Computed example of a mutant assay.
Amino acid sequence: MVKIAQFSVEAWMDKYEHNCKYNIAETCCASISIDQLRELSEDKRRDIFQTSTALTYGAIRGSDGLRDNLSRLYSARSGRVLPRDNIITTNGAIQANYLVAYTLLGPGDHVICHYPTYQSLYEIPKQLGAEVSLWKATPENKWSPSIDELKSLIKPNTKMIIINNPHNPTGAVLGKTFLQQVIDVASDRNIVIHSDEVYRPIFHSITPMDADFPPSIVSMGYDRVIATGSMSKAYSLAGIRVGWIASRDSSIIEEIAEARHYTLISVSMLDEQVAAFALDPSTIHSLLARNIALAKTNIDILEKFVLKNDDACDWVKPVAGTTAFVRFHRDGKPVDSVDFCEKLLEKTGVMFVPGSECFGEEFKGYVRIGYVNYTEGVKEGLDKATQFVRRNLDDVKLAE
């Protein structure tokens, strides 16, 4: 039997997210309804659901409409069209990431994983019998890992490098120059690069005009790459549970498609219709404009919170995505982040995620904050958190 370690961040969310007043742990851009999605479209008369269509298994690898829209996204600015046949859909990005590992990794393989990150990215390869080396990012380097360290971690049996861009929990990005260096390392040894891009394209503090703006990994000329994404984070539709896997290498897609038959068969036709509507050229620009504006507004609110409490917390300001990694301390000593989050929730109803519990015990004092929810709730919740820091921080245990 596979030994399954506790998925700490999901266990924390499961335990607390329905018992809080201010969920500032949520990592999705503020979720929307079907009615709100229609209002964002330029063509409000177009049906989202084709209600006359029989509800069969649908297109096994994903509907043509959805994959055509994804193809347009991945082909833009790249100079190379990514055919829809190089994209397959999944139940969320969590299944996309699982299928990549399940298909390509096993005993005898070595994996290098960007860290800290979403636990399943390194835990699933371990469960499948692969050896995993953590490629650690640090706040001193603006949460960017070192290319020299990457080179030192390479082994003869290294099969995959896993990155997360934009990055959860820090909101950092790996820029274009950095990504090219990763590709140079990988291409010398024919190593697959898997990039979890679930927070793309929520870039609120860097623009496509910046020289180092990060393209998708599938747009950089190296074919042995895989990008995973979903409708949950950047597109505000976590409830439809639609994700995808894209690769320039057709043989990788074919391998994953074979493994996918054992776990999925197909994605709900109804869910794919909603996703296709959201990613259609008549809707996507308004949807992303709404979410990027929300991120810009709310990151300013969060920055004011950090500045107001700079005697008790510090951070590296996020560049993209929906999350920030903030360190709380007392007289320079990190607090116990679990005790901090539990007491904060109990006294104020504000929910954060403890870094030491959910991202690695070395992240003492850190909490993850999800700030791209509805602005009023974020502002009220952070005001409550400020009151807690001022009145109750002395009651929080220090990290051991």
Rank of each mutant, 00 (worst) to 15 (best):
I124W: 12
S31Q: 14
K304H: 06
W135I: 05
E376C: 08
L153Y: 03
R80L: 12
E362Q: 14
K233Q: 07
W135G: 03
W143L: 01
A276C: 04
C28D: 15
W12A: 01
E26L: 11
Q273M: 00
F178I: 05
W244E: 08
T53Y: 09
A30Y: 05
T103C: 08
T51Q: 05
L153F: 00
E342S: 03
I284S: 00
I154R: 02
F359N: 06
N19K: 14
S31I: 08
G175M: 01
E272S: 08
A30L: 05
F213G: 07
H167A: 12
P116H: 04
T27M: 13
H18S: 14
N164W: 14
I206M: 12
L174H: 02
S250L: 08
A30F: 12
Y374R: 12
F277T: 06
K343E: 05
C29T: 11
V132D: 01
P139N: 15
K136Q: 13
A238H: 07
M160F: 08
D339S: 09
H329R: 14
S52G: 07
V198E: 11
F277Q: 02
K151N: 12
I202V: 13
N373D: 04
T170Q: 10
K159D: 01
K364S: 10
T228W: 13
G349M: 05
S266P: 06
D311P: 05
P166M: 04
E39K: 14
S63E: 10
L345N: 05
A276D: 00
F203H: 13
S187L: 02
I163Q: 01
L302P: 03
D85P: 02
R61E: 11
D35K: 15
R80F: 09
D47R: 15
K233M: 12
L287W: 08
I301F: 08
I284G: 01
K176N: 06
R84D: 00
E357I: 00
L344Y: 04
V185R: 08
E258Q: 08
H329W: 02
T103D: 05
P334D: 06
N91V: 10
E346N: 06
T263L: 10
W315Q: 05
E357K: 15
L344I: 10
V192E: 03
N19S: 13
N190L: 08
F305E: 04
P145V: 02
G349V: 04
